Simulated assay, not measured.
Amino acid sequence: MNGMTSLDDLRLFVAVARHSSFVEAARRSGVPTSTVSRRVAQLEEALGARLLQRTSRSVGLTHEGERLLERAGPLLEGLTSVLDTSVEREDEPRGRLRVTAPVMTGAQRIAPALFAFAARHPHLTLELELTNAVVPLVEEGFDLAFRSGPIHDAELVARRVWSIPFTLAASPQFVKQALRGRTQLDREMLGSVPAILSQPGGIWRLRRRDGSVEDFRPCERLRVNDPRMTIAAAVQGLGVVCAPKEAIDQQGQALVQLTLTGRTVEPRELFAVYPSRRQLPARVRMALDWVMKHG
């Protein structure tokens, strides 16, 4: 059995196993689905064991497949890291860079910085996924993620990138009608007016004058999973929104910033995270340094 061919077959098997899909493994590997199926079958024949249980609706691992994935997955990750580090020149990153970032901060700061980085390095292929979901990096094949802190996952390295100021805001119409013209609110009034949230059971973190932080639960009127749309809803007069100050400032006179007696909105800490057991390839390290400098 050809060593290089078997290694390629093993990579495809790991991709299918991690995504439970031949189609998804083919998409991420850049080869036809039929080729993935044939190569996995070739690996099974060479090993003399069935690795995957295939039905019309799903793909699952056999006991032998689970053992192979458990042993081969980390070895392939380490080999990929070694090869990446060996072939990349410090001044010219190349290969695929897969990054995930929060929707709003990703669109406003991270995406423009990464686009500029990619424009400077034509041998780099960039894939950026904006989502507020916590994506499993190794399983989904991401090199780098940007996440709001705190980061509790011991298997990830977390590097602080920015502190993002947040503020409260509402439309002039809402201020006039619902807030009776007041732009400085007390905690009780803030808790009684309609609020726009971006996640179920959303809370706003407020810092008191003594430095302590409290979780404040606003009165939800509308919830939308894209934070950019919470600002759009606030512009339409649907309630108070808590959002990055930079994004509120971009709305000009369409939104009025609100203050809170005795409290301020706690900033959000943004971290860059990556798997702790993986040596950071040059292209990932260079991209992260670029974002931190230019984002």
Rank of each mutant, 00 (worst) to 15 (best):
A243Q: 15
T5I: 14
F13V: 03
E64I: 02
R209W: 08
R263H: 15
A118V: 02
T55C: 06
A178F: 05
V241F: 04
V235R: 15
A243K: 02
S21L: 07
P227Q: 11
R28L: 15
G141K: 07
N132C: 08
Q250C: 02
G95T: 04
L156P: 03
N2H: 11
P150D: 08
G106S: 07
F174H: 06
R205I: 08
S198L: 01
Q257M: 12
L280T: 10
A119Q: 15
D226Q: 08
I196C: 07
T264N: 04
L258I: 09
A254Y: 06
R187H: 09
L185N: 03
V138G: 06
K245R: 15
L190P: 01
N225Q: 08
F13A: 01
P172G: 04
R28D: 04
R283N: 05
D186A: 08
A17G: 10
T259S: 15
D210N: 15
A46L: 12
L7N: 05
R89N: 12
N2Q: 10
R109L: 09
F142I: 01
R120N: 06
R159S: 10
Q184V: 11
M1S: 12
V14G: 01
L238Q: 13
V193S: 08
D143C: 03
L124M: 09
E90F: 11
E66V: 09
H63R: 15
F166A: 01
G65T: 03
M4Q: 13
G239Y: 06
A234L: 08
T167D: 14
T131R: 07
L258T: 01
L69S: 05
A41C: 07
T131L: 11
Q236M: 15
S56L: 08
P244Q: 14
Q53H: 13
V40Q: 04
V16G: 01
N132V: 04
L288D: 05
E24I: 12
A17R: 04
T62C: 03
R89H: 12
H123A: 13
L197H: 07
L12R: 09
